[in-house]
Computed example of a mutant assay.
Amino acid sequence: MKFAAVLFSGAIILAGVHGAFAQSNPADSARAAAQQLEQASLSLQSARKSRDRVAALTQTVQAYEAGLMAMREGLRRAAIREAQIGRELKAQEAEISRLLGVLQSMGSGPPPVMLLHPSGPTGTARSGMILADITPALEARANKLRVDLEEIVILRDLQQGAADDLQAGLRGVQDARTELSKAISDRSDLPQRFADDPVKTALLIATTETLEGFASGLSEIQEDGVQPMDLPDISARKGSLALPVQAQVLRYAGEADAAGIRRPGLVLAARPNALVVSPTAATIRYRGPLLDYGNVMILEPQTGLLFVLAGMETVFGDAGQVIPEGTPVGLMGGEDPKIGAILSQSGDGSGNGRSETLYIEVRQDKNSVDPNIWFRTDKDG
């Protein structure tokens, strides 16, 4: 009976080896991400022949960014899954060894020795009944152990083979960004709502100490020569606008940073070289460096409403142009991580890869308003 109890205990312990990740499949996620990157590569080839190269290349860059993000997430989950299986197997090492020993002895021992019990025929019969009940469970647990060991091998092979997919993806997205920048600079079909006066703008920058003051003065110096142009009313889209970049919210409006400074806008954490697009059709009111915000893009979706995007390394377009929704307006700074850095951080879910910050401020009738009123974020309520 003690022997049977040991077997039953080992079977119960092995039941937990599959763990909490059994319902997910990180290997499939990584493979799907590799397919996304392959599709992005094909999209780049098609974009080069597209009539609207800006729109096609924008979609290509976004496809690459999504594929690379999915690949990083797939590798992260794969590393977590492998580590979890390893920890669980290590924790149950003694029990697994005993179980394997019992299974081996059951399969190799002579039948008379296996069935003989010291208490006689009655004990032998009882032991046989117990073994008959437990053996299927032991075999099931042994099969799960085999599956887990095979999964570890698959996950390791997947992570080792991911370097080529990542390298191709990083090279492809870099090519797509370069071609997109050229296509935007060559573009000549955008409506021009007003002609920028660089002298007045430079004087305003020189005499302004705050973003609020610059945004307020900007509309005043550009009133002359502004052509009336009907843009879609976006009032009904409050709270549903997509963020202009793939990012996570670091701080919401009014939340203090490490230095205790509170700003009226959103601070987003984005990946290096991430593409920033216009969330709506809008007039470019200003683009260029401003104060300590880095490169700034000020968009006017409708009269009296300004979206201020600050912190990009590169900005696209010219003041006065009217751009469609989804038009690229800039790229974040930084450098794409090396393959080794991505793989070494694959088990880190802290978001350290999002090293660049984009600041979004919304101004309505010259007053700052919470961007969460307009943009779709993860904030509850």
Rank of each mutant, 00 (worst) to 15 (best):
D348R: 12
I80R: 07
E65R: 06
K200P: 05
V61K: 04
A70K: 05
D157R: 15
T210F: 02
A195H: 13
V276A: 09
V249Q: 06
L145Q: 07
G120D: 11
Y252Q: 08
G347P: 05
Q39E: 06
Q35I: 14
A168L: 04
I13D: 00
R77K: 09
L343W: 07
L103Q: 15
L291T: 11
D189R: 09
D365L: 05
L290F: 02
P289L: 01
K144T: 12
Q35A: 15
G217H: 11
G330M: 09
L166E: 02
V61N: 07
G347R: 07
L138G: 06
G317I: 09
R271W: 05
V6H: 11
A259P: 02
G347N: 04
L75C: 08
T208S: 07
A142I: 07
D370P: 09
S368K: 06
P324I: 08
D186W: 10
I85P: 00
L180A: 01
E300V: 03
A56I: 05
K366E: 14
T201W: 02
G107T: 11
L231V: 08
Q192Y: 04
R98H: 14
A142Q: 14
S278G: 11
G353D: 11
Q160I: 10
Y286R: 04
L42A: 14
T208Y: 00
S219I: 14
L268S: 02
A55L: 11
L241M: 09
G334V: 03
D348W: 12
T58C: 06
G217A: 10
A30L: 04
R81W: 01
P26F: 02
I154H: 00
M332C: 06
L68W: 00
L57D: 01
G340D: 09
I221Q: 01
G123Q: 05
A202D: 09
L231Q: 14
A270M: 05
K90T: 15
L7T: 00
E255A: 07
L218W: 07
A27G: 00
S119Y: 07
G254L: 00
R156D: 12
T135Q: 10
A258L: 10
A195Q: 12
T377Q: 03
I80V: 13
R81D: 06
E73T: 04
A70C: 01
Q104C: 14
R251F: 05
I184W: 08
S9A: 12
A66Q: 11
V276G: 07
L243T: 01
P121M: 12
S235F: 00
F8Q: 13
G381T: 13
A215T: 12
I13H: 02
Y64A: 00
A132W: 12
L75Q: 08
A195E: 10
A132C: 09
G334P: 08
E95V: 15
A247P: 03
S185R: 10
I152H: 03
L343F: 08
I234R: 04
R72N: 04
T135L: 13
R146K: 10
S216K: 15
T178S: 14
L243K: 01
W374R: 10
R146Y: 06
A125F: 15
R156N: 07
R363E: 10
